[in-house]
Nucleic acid binder design. Structure first.
Lengths: 211, 211
DNA sequence: GTCTATACTTCGATAGAC
DNA sequence: GTCTATCGAAGTATAGAC
C-alpha cells in the first residue's frame, strides 16, 4: 500500500485553519473546508461532529502548540532580558510557521471567546501566564523594570500579531494605491521590536556605567 | 414639535456598531440590528441599501472620527515626546467613548479589508500615517529615537486595542475560573503604557545628566 | 470509512399596501 | 417614510446506500 490515505483529519484541520482564519467562525463554510481538504462534507462530520467542534479542535491545537514553544523560552537557561527578546523572536517564528495564527487570535479576542469551551480557553490563557512569568522573574532578579505582567504580555504580543496579521489588509491598501510605506519587512520589524521591548522593560540603571 | 423623530439612521448606526463589533460581518444579523434600533428591516434597507453598505458606513464613520481625534494631537503645540504619550491617552479615550472600536478594528485586520471600498480603506490608513508623522517629527528634532513609523504605530496602537478589546474574553476566562490576574485596570494599564512607550522611543541620552 | 442526495433552517433582500 | 409578508438563496447537518 503506497499511500495509507490516513490523512483526512490532518488535512481537514489544515483546511479549517485556512478557512476559519480568513473568514471567521460565522463566515467559514463547511463545504469550503471539505472541498479544500478534498473530502466530502459527510466525512468531515464523521471525524469532527460539528462545525463548532472542528473550530475548537483547531484552536486548541493552535494555542497549545504556541504555548509549548513559549514555555521552552521561559524555562531556558538565559538571563531575563534575553528571554524577553527571545519571546519576540519566538512569537514571530510561530506566525511564520502557522500563517493563520494572527487572524485566529485577533478574531477570537474580538469574539469574546463565544464559541470556546473551557479547555480551549485555558490553552489561550496559558500565553499571558508564560510571558508574565518571565517578566516577574526578571523583576525579582533586578534585571527588568517592575511592570504589570499582563501589560508586558500585550506590549510584546499585540504589535507582532497585529502587524503580521495585517499583511492581507496592507495588500488591499496597496492595491488601491493607499500605502505610503517603503515596505517594512518582517525581519526589520522583528529587529526593531526587540530593540523597543528591550528599552521599554530594561531596569533603570542603578549602577552607572563607568565613565 | 417636541421630538423630530429624525433619528432612524443614527439609531441604526449605533445598533450596527454593537452587532458588527460583537459578531463580525458574517455573524451579524440584519434582523437583530433592526430590532435593536427599533426600526423594521425594510426601513433599514431604505436608509442604507444593503448589509454591506451599512457596514461600510459604520467603519467609515468610526475611523474618520478616530483619525480626527489623533490629528488634533499630532498638530498640537507640544514636544514630540509628549505628543507620543498623548497618543496613548487619546487612543484610550477613543475606545472609552466608542466601546466597539477595538473589536471592529481587530476583525477588519483579520478579515483583510474584504468588505471595504477605497474610501473606507483610506480612512483606516490615516491612523498609521498620523502616528508616523509624530514619530518622524520627533526624530528630526532629536527628541525621539529613529524608528520605522509603522513600527511605532503598531507598538502604540496594538497593545491598547487588544487589551481594551479583550475585556469580554477576560470575562469569559474569569467565568471559568481561569484568570489569575489581580485585575489590571484600564487606568493603570494606560499609565504603564505611557511609561513603556516613553522608554521605548526616547532618544538615546547624548548629553549626560550632570552627576 | 466513503459518498450522494436531501431535509430543515436561517438570512438577506424586496414587493406592495398605507 | 413606514410596515407586513414572503421569496429565494445559502448553509448546517443527516439519512442511507455502498
Amino acid at each position: 500500500m503506497p499511500r495509507p490515505a490516513r490523512v483526512s483529519p490532518d488535512r481537514i484541520l489544515a483546511a479549517a485553519a485556512a478557512e476559519f482564519s480568513a473568514r471567521g467562525y460565522a463566515g467559514a463554510r463547511v463545504d469550503r473546508i471539505a472541498r479544500r481538504a478534498r473530502v466530502n462534507k459527510a466525512m468531515l462530520y464523521y471525524h469532527f461532529g460539528s462545525k463548532q467542534a472542528l473550530y475548537r479542535a483547531l484552536l486548541l491545537d493552535t494555542f497549545t502548540a504556541a504555548a509549548a514553544r513559549l514555555r521552552e523560552v521561559a524555562s531556558a537557561p538565559l538571563p531575563p532580558e534575553q528571554k524577553l527578546e527571545q519571546l519576540v523572536t519566538t512569537v514571530s517564528a510561530i506566525v511564520a510557521e502557522r500563517a493563520h495564527f494572527p487572524a485566529i487570535m485577533l478574531r477570537e479576542v474580538a469574539e469574546g471567546g463565544t464559541h470556546l469551551d473551557k479547555d480551549t480557553l485555558a490553552a489561550m490563557a496559558a500565553l499571558p501566564a508564560i510571558v508574565g512569568q518571565v517578566v516577574m522573574e526578571g523583576a525579582q532578579k533586578g534585571a527588568l523594570r517592575r511592570v504589570h505582567p499582563v501589560l508586558a504580555y500585550f506590549t510584546i504580543f499585540a504589535p507582532i500579531v497585529l502587524y503580521l496579521g495585517g499583511a492581507p489588509i496592507r495588500r488591499a491598501l496597496a492595491t488601491h494605491g493607499l500605502v505610503d510605506l517603503t515596505e517594512l519587512t518582517p525581519e526589520l520589524f522583528e529587529r526593531e521590536m526587540r530593540a523597543s521591548i528591550r528599552r521599554a522593560f530594561a531596569a533603570p540603571a542603578v549602577t552607572e556605567r563607568r565613565s
